[in-house]
Design a protein around this nucleic acid. Structure first.
Lengths: 356, 356
DNA sequence: GGCGCCTACTAAACCGGTTCAAACCTGAGG
DNA sequence: CCTCAGGTTTGAACCGGTTTAGTAGGCGCC
């Protein structure tokens, strides 16, 4: 029976082996290669193990021998709890976890970015970097460990897989939609451009120094369309707030809507920001899309449920998660690039500018 | 010249040691106990390691020696992706991850329940069981491994920590709120009671066989109040749907609202179900709370954002997550029970019954 | 000059398994 | 009687580190 601490140390495979007078290899085989044992001996081994309170080979030791952990790592940027507060991230996680589940893998969440102490020692076979990766080798710890990895939404790195979307094209389609409706006074509700926690109106210099790839690309998409239509980009205010949640969107939009002349349309870099912007419009007593049109990015579930339903750029978050995980399971496929499609989804939050 | 290391082989601590003509212990110390080395030798070790492409001690091997993984396991019930689609679960995860982050631990997500292959071999120091645990030893795999664990919202198990809420009391306060408003014809939008994927109106027999602890308790809370007020429980239809998402709530509520006489108030066992029920009310052309009052359970963020804002029972999801994780960090505290408070939050989705 | 003490380093045991080549049976075929 | 085949079982190397007890040498102290 199981009593508390058994004197004489822990019960290991060796304990069982010597209790039976067989070799350790045999006990190991009883668990891992039943067919190599006579059924009779095998059942003796298992019974004795049971009596001794041996729960089977220690996973850690087995892992060391085998060299395979059966776990995928997922590296988040700063606050990990953040990864859960962003609906887009949650969808991504869902996608990753679907694959993990199908393949019987554990999913190891790692906070603090790719250079954190945790990332350096986490027990995984491969890593997914779902965080903004500074192009100049912020991944040293992971690369040095020799782990295969894929970068999501980040820069394309040699030797690593890559999954992303056409951020620029998606942003461009959002901007084009507004211009097509006749808007000329636009404002941008921006995600952070640089990791300095700064808030305010990002001038051209700051925009040029933008670091985060997704922010960069989306900004560039907006800009290309605006300038392509013959409007000066300098007339489009870019309000940056941190972090990138709903409240940030609300504050950024409040600032934009307080401008005179007031923008007639807002380009938000994410749905969360857009949803915050809708709240800001309500705060200001403005109707959407009557007084101000708002378009988001992501198409999270809340976008369709919003009042009015949010026009946005759909990207396949779950599929991104699945693809990232699958990339790591097929050896040799790392190095591949996967760019998933985006699509403008026109709903009720956009319409022609007032007075037109 | 690398006489010590075998050509073609991997660079290990031994490779570095023999390249330098020092012992392995010394190299190990260079990384783990710098103060035990002369600075000069240490820098020689580090430099040589760098030249040889040695990235530092292998985390897996180090873990085997040390006996500590620095990771917490989180066991989910069936589809893990589910854990992410339920907003309450996401909040819980956030709580757990906050602690993990603070303590520099990885968070290992494990699908398939506590008896899955993954749970059996996952590399963790302790487990959080965030899934419905059959009271009769469905946790054998984890118990056998000797891992400390806490059960969340499940049965109280000997030797394990426990975190939960007063489900019965919370449910009771919701029911009492409706009765106080004057409602007499109630309906229950239920989470699954038994793990058989069944759908329909749960009769008394099925209610008695209910397995899932939270469902049981909430049901009992409703019932006690209803009967305490002198109404027959048999007159209260309990509609069970699976899974426990918004769509399930919508279908269950549709069935309830199609009854004649129609219930004037719905008790939903979760906010997701309640939100689905609100959609069903809209489908039926009924106003909330004018024609039908709806009360949820959980107080997820979407509850406050709903139209009308949802009356519900608040439970501290994040705190539950934090508490569960913290319980595992303090040795010897396992075995403790933590019952967190709930609180009725009255919003706009409840009011007096029509014609009163 | 003997003694204790400190620093810098090492040898060897240990963590708990997996695996591969070789040894050991046992029975069939020649 | 010998050989060969085939299924069982084992010895020993290996996975890649950490750690403890202990040694060698240098130094101050009386």
């Amino acid at each position: 029976m199981e009593t508390g601490g058994r004197a004489g140390g822990r019960v290991t495979l060796a304990t069982v082996a010597s209790a039976l007078g067989v070799s350790r290899a045999t006990v190991s085989n009883a668990y891992n290669h039943p067919e190599r044992l006579s059924p009779r001996l095998r059942s003796r081994v298992l019974r004795t193990a049971g009596e001794l309170g041996y729960a089977g080979p220690d996973p850690l030791a087995a892992t060391l021998s085998r060299g395979r952990v059966n776990a995928l790592g997922l590296v988040h940027g700063a606050p990990m709890s953040f990864g859960f507060s962003d609906p887009a991230a949650v969808l991504f996680l869902q996608g990753v976890s679907e694959v993990c589940e199908r393949e019987d893998l554990a999913l190891v969440l790692i906070a603090g970015g790719p250079d954190s102490a945790v990332a350096r020692v986490a027990l995984v076979d491969a890593m997914i970097c779902y965080c903004d990766v500074p192009a100049e080798g912020g991944l040293a710890a992971i690369v040095d460990r020799g782990l295969p990895f894929v970068v999501v939404d980040g820069p394309r790195l040699p030797g690593a897989g890559h999954v992303g979307i056409d951020d620029r094209g998606g942003a461009a389609s959002a901007a084009r939609h507004l211009l097509d409706l006749g808007h000329t006074r636009l404002g941008v509700v921006a995600m952070p451009l640089i990791e300095d926690e700064w808030e305010g109106t990002a001038d051209q210099d700051r925009q040029d120094r933008a670091h985060y790839r997704a922010s960069c690309e989306r900004l560039r998409g907006y800009r290309e369309v605006v300038e392509g239509a013959g409007h000066p980009w300098s007339a489009v205010p870019v309000e940056e707030r941190v972090p990138y949640g709903r409240d940030a969107g609300r504050r950024a939009a409040a600032a934009l809507l307080a401008r005179r002349p007031r923008p007639t349309a807002l380009l938000a870099m994410s749905d969360e920001l857009a949803l915050g912007a809708m709240a800001a419009a309500a705060d200001a007593g403005l109707s959407v899309p009557g007084d101000v049109a708002i378009v988001g990015f992501d198409d999270v579930p809340a976008a369709a449920d919003a009042h009015p339903a949010l026009t946005t750029v759909r990207q396949p978050h779950r599929k991104k998660g699945r693809r990232a995980a699958e990339l790591l399971l097929r050896p040799g496929v790392a190095g591949d690039e996967h760019r998933l499609p985006v699509e403008l989804v026109v709903r009720a939050s956009t319409g022609p500018p007032p007075g037109r």
